[in-house]
């Protein structure tokens, strides 16, 4: 990336770093357990959302498996920890398990265009649940518990760091040639191929990278909850959260998933108090409203009038020559 591009993302990177430092140092300010947990879930949703954003937001290939990919990361990490691996190795193992899963799904379906990939991810989501319910290694339907109990600060700080890294990564990617090529794939694959873009490889590569992020989220979350039940971990709810966060906040943007996660976590908390059973109904209605009225998501929708305002006073001469 060029120096000019770097300068345009620098303020964003600094903002991300400042917010992450603030979130990670909450306990030092004496924040309540409740506030810390809220921030943790906000960070978790941001990581899930950014990982989905990286694949589906950028290339347009909709995944319903990011929850299952995170689940693979969680299981692999907890199994590795129980086998006596040190924490960093167990986390890396979690990421690798998710990447391996994504490679199988992607290599079999990303050669094709359109909905083949989406169906493959749905199939994978169900298959992962079935397999982990049966495997003795994963504790079967009764689940699996982490034997060492770690201080909660570890997964909390880890998740905040992941959220910051993933958001910074998307911010830089969006300004890089690689990011432009991913968007080009979303727009027109034939035209992208005509420009020398190896469409199938790039899709597969970015899906694996996105799975590594989802796997890291799952791995940290496994340390946080310390007990895994297959029906919860592989519930389609997690995949829907990963999808809803960027779709509501704004796809193919770095800020969109942050806004989306804040909105979802906020709404979720309010509903806990007023109408706990309506959670999914409200999320569904929100998604529908966003898709219908602001297809680019909340953040771009709100930013559009500002951009028009700032573009308006430009004199005609600067707009270049007419044809």
């Amino acid at each position: 990336m060029s120096g000019r591009a770097l300068r345009t993302v620098l303020p964003g990177l600094l903002l991300i770093a400042a917010l992450a430092l603030l979130a990670a140092s909450l306990p030092a300010f004496g924040a309540s357990r409740y506030a810390q947990t809220l921030v943790y879930y906000l960070a978790y949703d941001i990581v899930l959302g950014q990982s989905w954003n990286l694949m589906s937001g950028m290339t347009g290939y909709v995944s319903f498996a990011h929850g299952a990919l995170a689940g693979l990361g969680a299981y692999a990490t907890v199994i590795a920890m129980n086998a006596g691996w040190p924490v960093p190795a167990a986390l890396a193992g979690g990421c690798l398990a998710s990447v391996a899963g994504s490679f199988v799904v992607g290599a079999s379906s990303l050669r094709l265009r359109g909905v083949a990939f989406t169906f493959a991810t749905l199939f994978f989501q169900q298959l992962a649940l079935l397999i982990l319910r049966k495997l003795p290694l994963s504790g079967g339907p009764g689940g699996l518990a982490l034997q060492d109990i770690l201080p909660l600060a570890l997964p909390q700080i880890l998740m905040v760091a992941l959220a910051a890294l993933a958001t910074a990564g998307v911010l830089i990617l969006r300004r890089s040639r690689l990011g432009i090529r991913l968007l080009a794939i979303r727009e027109d694959e034939d035209a992208a191929a005509a420009l020398g873009i190896g469409v199938t490889r790039l899709k597969l590569g970015v899906f694996c990278a996105s799975a590594a992020i989802a796997g890291a989220a799952g791995a940290a979350h496994g340390l946080f909850t310390a007990s895994l039940y297959p029906d919860d971990v592989f519930s389609v709810d997690v995949s829907l959260t990963a999808l809803a966060v960027p779709m509501i906040g704004g796809m193919a943007t770095a800020g969109g998933p942050v806004a989306g996660a804040a909105l979802l976590v906020g709404i979720g908390e309010l509903l806990q108090i007023f109408a706990p059973s309506l959670h999914l109904v409200v999320i569904g209605a929100l998604l529908l409203a966003v898709v219908l009225f602001m297809p680019r998501g909340l953040l771009p929708f709100l930013a559009a009038p500002l951009r028009r305002l700032s573009a308006a006073p430009q004199p005609a001469a600067e707009r270049g020559t007419a044809p």
Partner: peptide
């Protein structure tokens, strides 16, 4: 038939 990346 031109095939630009319309959103870029």
């Amino acid at each position: 038939v031109t095939r630009p990346f319309r959103d870029l």
